[in-house]
Simulated assay, not measured.
Amino acid sequence: MELRTARLLLRPARSDDVDPLHAIMRQPRTMAYWSTPPHESPEQTADFVTAMMEIPDGQGEDFVVEWEGRVIGKAGLYRFPDIGYLFDPAVWGQGFAQEALRAVIGRAFTVHALPRIQADVDPRNAASIRLLGRLGFHETHRQSRTWLVGEEWCDSVYFALLREDFQTT
């Protein structure tokens, strides 16, 4: 299953995505608020890509995001109803994350009939929090020490978006 937006192609992961995703996921800026430290080896990214490819039908849907034929990130619901995304810092600020997430969310609500989508965000990730707000997500609660990333405990702020609150434009 592929999704197309005005500028993007969202498609299932393939084994040849390891190198371009590793180039993104090895960057400290990309992974600053992710649930793992930057990937140190292509094998670590290969495990990530394999996990994307092996999501059981009906349990989630994760996409590699391409712009002009180049892999720029990933966006999807690894496990329903939890949304996740990351993009190459080289393309930050150009609206790609919002464009990709609108397509993913629209599909989740219409095709998969999810009543709600949720997100777990590091409270230091102001850009992601603003993005979720623009998409209509609302904060539901916060929790301390939810992720041990490397040697550091990180907190979470949780967001939810109800189907009836999602605006397609």
Rank of each mutant, 00 (worst) to 15 (best):
E68S: 15
P42Y: 06
A127C: 09
Q94L: 14
R11P: 04
A119E: 01
A126G: 10
T30C: 10
D155K: 05
H138R: 13
A160I: 00
E152S: 10
H112V: 00
P38L: 07
A126S: 11
F63Y: 15
G106F: 06
P81M: 09
E99Y: 13
G106Y: 05
F109G: 03
W153E: 06
S35V: 13
G76M: 02
E152R: 12
M31I: 01
G73W: 09
Q98G: 15
R70Y: 07
H39L: 05
T140L: 05
R107D: 03
M31R: 03
R124E: 12
T146H: 01
A119R: 10
R145K: 09
P37Q: 10
E43K: 01
H112M: 04
L8C: 10
I117L: 12
A127N: 04
Q98R: 15
R134V: 02
L162M: 11
R134P: 00
D62K: 09
Q94D: 10
T30N: 07
L77S: 00
L114D: 05
D155L: 04
D155N: 11
Q59W: 02
Q98S: 14
R11W: 13
L132R: 04
E66R: 08
D47N: 02
A97P: 14
I129Y: 02
D17I: 10
D122E: 03
M52C: 12
F109T: 01
D122S: 02
R107V: 12
A13I: 08
A113L: 14
I24T: 11
T45R: 05
P89K: 07
G84N: 11
E152T: 13
S15F: 02
G76R: 05
T45K: 12
G150N: 04
F80V: 01
E99T: 10
G150C: 09
S128F: 06
S41A: 06
A90L: 12
I105Y: 02
L77N: 06
F63T: 06
V64D: 09
P20W: 04
W153Q: 07
S41Q: 11
L131W: 11
A6S: 15
V71C: 14
R107C: 04
R7W: 13
S128I: 00
P37M: 14
D88M: 05
D155M: 08
W67G: 04
H39A: 07
L9G: 08
L114F: 07
Y33V: 10
S144F: 08
T5A: 09
R130W: 09
A32Q: 08
F137E: 02
T140M: 14
L3H: 07
L162K: 00
A13V: 08
L148T: 07
L77C: 14
E139T: 09
G93E: 02
Y78C: 07
A6V: 05
G136S: 03
G95Y: 05
G133I: 13
S144H: 06
T45P: 13
Q98K: 15
S156L: 00
W67I: 11
S15H: 06
G69A: 13
A108P: 05
Y158T: 01
R102H: 10
T45H: 13
L161M: 03
M1W: 06
T36F: 15
D155C: 06
S128P: 10
P37W: 12
S128T: 11
D82R: 03
P81V: 12
D155A: 07
I105C: 05
F87A: 03
M52D: 01
L132C: 03
T5H: 13
Q44G: 14
M1G: 14
H138Q: 15
L161N: 02
Q94A: 08
W147V: 11
